[in-house]
Computed example of a mutant assay.
Amino acid sequence: MDPVYSGPAQPDQNGRHERMHRDLKAACAKPSSFDLKAQQRSLNRFVKEYNHIRPHESLEMKTPADCHDFSNRPYPEKIPKYHYSSTMKVMKVCQNGSMRWKSYYWVYLTAALKGKYVGAEDQGNGIWRVFYSDVFLGYFNEKNIRDKQVSIRLSQNLV
């Protein structure tokens, strides 16, 4: 699985995903059910129809259940530690989803990586590439860090 980088509030950048959410909302949330059990039954019906009954044009009119192969690879109980290259600066992502840069500054990554270690690779001229294991997360320019109270965000391009 690879992460998809789409801009915030940019549904046009991820149309298939947004279409699934539109269908889910129409089937289960407009109107929502009276209680949680009824809402769960509604969601279960949607999942069954979406995955086993309704053909999808992008799958050559097959259902997702027809195309899906279950993995026989075991899921690890604990993710093994990743060893970053010795040329990388390794930092722990704090509870606020940011990594501390040079003791005073903050670079926001994502709250999903709280407590995990990331590696930053120097590209020269103040530009750093940030990775979580071998997944590229984005760039930041340390020259843009000016205020100790404000964090900057990673960007996907250097422009």
Rank of each mutant, 00 (worst) to 15 (best):
K81N: 11
K81D: 14
K81M: 10
K81W: 01
Y82E: 05
Y82W: 13
Y82P: 02
Y82C: 02
H83A: 13
H83I: 15
Y84M: 05
Y84C: 01
Y84T: 04
S86E: 01
S86F: 01
S86Q: 13
T87W: 06
M88K: 05
M88I: 08
K89T: 05
K89N: 00
V90W: 05
M91P: 07
K92P: 01
K92F: 00
K92I: 01
K92Y: 01
V93S: 11
C94Q: 15
C94G: 03
C94H: 10
Q95R: 14
Q95L: 13
Q95T: 13
N96Y: 03
N96T: 14
N96D: 14
N96M: 01
G97I: 01
S98M: 02
S98A: 15
M99Y: 08
M99I: 15
M99V: 15
M99K: 04
R100C: 13
R100S: 14
R100D: 13
R100K: 07
K102L: 04
K102F: 05
S103I: 06
S103N: 07
S103L: 08
S103G: 00
Y104C: 03
Y104F: 12
Y104G: 05
Y105V: 07
Y105F: 15
Y105T: 06
W106H: 13
V107D: 07
V107M: 08
Y108L: 09
L109F: 05
T110Y: 07
T110M: 05
T110N: 09
T110K: 09
T110F: 08
A111C: 00
A111N: 12
A111E: 13
A111T: 14
A111F: 01
A111P: 00
A112F: 03
L113M: 11
L113G: 02
L113R: 02
L113F: 14
L113N: 04
L113P: 04
K114V: 13
K114W: 02
K114M: 08
G115L: 05
G115I: 09
G115R: 03
K116I: 00
K116M: 03
Y117L: 10
Y117G: 00
Y117I: 02
Y117A: 07
V118Q: 00
V118N: 06
V118S: 08
G119N: 13
G119F: 07
G119A: 11
A120V: 11
A120P: 05
A120Y: 02
A120G: 11
A120D: 01
E121Q: 12
E121N: 12
E121F: 13
E121T: 04
Q123W: 06
G124I: 02
G124C: 03
N125T: 01
G126I: 07
I127N: 05
I127T: 08
W128E: 07
V130D: 07
V130C: 02
F131H: 15
F131Q: 10
Y132C: 12
Y132E: 04
S133C: 14
D134G: 03
V135T: 15
V135D: 04
V135R: 10
V135W: 08
F136G: 00
F136Q: 10
F136T: 06
F136V: 12
L137D: 01
L137A: 08
L137K: 10
L137I: 11
G138W: 10
G138R: 07
G138Y: 00
G138F: 04
G138E: 12
G138D: 05
Y139F: 15
Y139Q: 09
F140A: 06
E142V: 14
E142W: 09
K143H: 15
K143G: 10
K143Q: 14
N144T: 03
N144D: 14
I145R: 06
I145V: 06
I145L: 15
R146I: 05
R146W: 00
